[in-house]
Design a protein around this nucleic acid. Structure first.
Length: 410
RNA sequence: GCUGAGGUGCCGGAGCGGUCAAUCGGAGCAGACUGUAAAUCUGCCGCCCGACAGGGCUACGUAGGUUCAAAUCCUACCCUCAGCA
């Protein structure tokens, strides 16, 4: 990987850069849609190209369970498997330690038991514990069939090597929120040990002849605690991975706390490494992250919202529509039944140029699959385009101006 | 015309003397969702008053009746559907 910072914003830490990879170059800042199962849900690679998506984010855990990393390797790697020849990032499965373990369960570190909370109970959780953490790694019970699987740093990286992604994440332990300092510290230290193991196995595997140029990002943890986040930033930065990811954010803490974490970490990250923010975000988060020096960020929001009747719009549009929450338009609302306007007045996407809210409303009401397709297309386009504008604004020295324009206040 | 089954809230469909303004679906109305166990989940969903607690009213084809008490029992009528003529 070659990473180059092309331009730095004068007033903020925002920067424009290029990440050159085996499958192409990513212009940053860039949004990274999530495509957990080797598909950005509802969109084809052709759509992604049309939208201008440069890279997306697949998942080790899911692809390992189905269809299996060996199968994908046998077929020629994830790019060939899914007909996408641009860059791909893969998550390590670390987040599933959190998301599958979440609920009213107890997390274990050795003999230490710490109670964790996560407000929302979700249907589909059987009440059974799907995750058991130990120093070696994590034992998962497959959410698909209940079978038991071990994921640890070595295995996660091996799988990611088999998948053949351009950027891999180190296997981390993502703590829930809230989380005691004591627990966060123990968990972070383990994440560091795991990161070291990831680096080691990555070096070993890198020498294998079949390997394309694959790159590893270390993942910073430490919950919301300043001392921990600093420690973690220093440690992960010292590992000399190609890039750095910030994890354990957007797990239930406030936005303010989340932005603080970025501020804590910032001074300790090498300028010449790309920084990825894991699992963020909404429009206001995007600006908050970019101005704190984030280069790439992945998030399920555009794709998931589109499946749940929520379309992303500009603050201007959402003000005009008096939406309950900024930048979200609930397309199924009965006020759009006869609305012949586009989703967003200022969006140039295929959907906004050719379809009315009335039609989208009808598709969603009817449960038609096309509604989800068009909605996803719009949402992903909207985020991709927003980042294009952000890049442009930084290059022109107008980032702050753009940020003000997109401000959710007033 | 005879025989049988049935008529319940926007729709489907439970309930078969009190705990029924009525289970449960669907539709409808709104909300949530941030490294995807998510095309998912949550709330509301007869009318009126109340911020809430709660209170009042009208309701289970229609009209009577029995009972302290009826969607639930009885009588008549009206209407559907199935089979036979």
């Amino acid at each position: 990987m070659k990473f180059k910072v092309i331009k730095k914003d004068r007033q903020t830490k925002a920067r424009v850069g290029k990440i050159a990879l085996a499958h192409g170059t990513i212009e940053t800042p860039s949004f990274v849609p999530v495509g957990t199962q080797a598909t950005v849900k509802a969109l084809s690679p052709r759509d992604l190209h049309e939208i201008g998506v440069q890279v997306f984010f697949a998942n080790t855990y899911h692809l390992y369970l189905r269809p299996g990393a060996d199968l994908i390797a046998k077929i020629g790697g994830i790019h060939k498997f899914m007909n996408w020849d641009n860059p791909i990032m893969t998550d390590s499965g670390g987040f599933q330690v959190f998301s599958l373990g979440l609920g009213k369960y107890k997390f274990k570190i050795g003999d230490e038991k710490t109670k964790v909370f996560f407000g929302q109970e979700r249907k589909g959780i059987t009440g059974e514990k799907l995750v058991e953490i130990s120093e070696d790694g994590v034992e998962f019970k497959s959410h698909l069939d209940g079978s038991k699987h071990i994921l640890n740093p070595e295995k996660s990286i091996e799988i990611q090597h088999k998948l053949g992604s351009d950027i891999m994440m180190s296997f981390d332990d993502c703590t829930p929120y809230p989380c005691s300092h004591e627990y966060a510290k123990l968990s972070m230290e383990r994440t560091h040990r795991w990161a070291t193991r990831c680096v080691r196995i990555h070096r070993k595997l890198k020498n294998k002849p079949h390997n394309l140029s694959q790159n590893l990002y270390g993942v910073i943890q430490g919950s919301i605690y300043e001392d921990l986040r600093i420690k973690s930033a220093q440690f992960i930065d010292s590992l000399n991975t190609s890039g750095i990811a910030i994890g354990g954010v957007s797990v239930g803490e406030s936005k303010k706390e989340m932005y603080q974490v970025l501020d804590f970490v910032n001074p300790y990250l090498s300028e010449d490494k790309p920084r990825h923010l894991l699992g963020v975000g909404e429009i206001d988060d995007v600006f908050a992250a970019v101005e704190r020096g984030i280069d790439t960020m992945d998030c399920v929001i555009p794709t998931r919202w589109a499946r749940n009747e929520t379309l992303i719009v500009s603050p201007e549009t959402s003000r005009k529509e008096q939406t309950k929450t900024p930048c979200r338009l609930s397309i199924k609302n009965n006020k759009y039944i006869e609305d012949t306007g586009p989703i967003d007045q200022n969006c140039d996407c295929y959907v906004c140029k050719n379809y009315t809210r009335a039609y989208l409303n009808h598709l969603y009401r009817s449960g038609e699959i096309l509604g989800i397709y068009l909605g996803t297309f719009h949402n992903v386009y909207f985020m991709t385009e927003l980042f294009r504008k952000i890049r442009e604004s930084i290059l022109e020295g107008k980032f702050i101006k753009l940020k003000k324009k997109w401000s959710l206040q007033d």
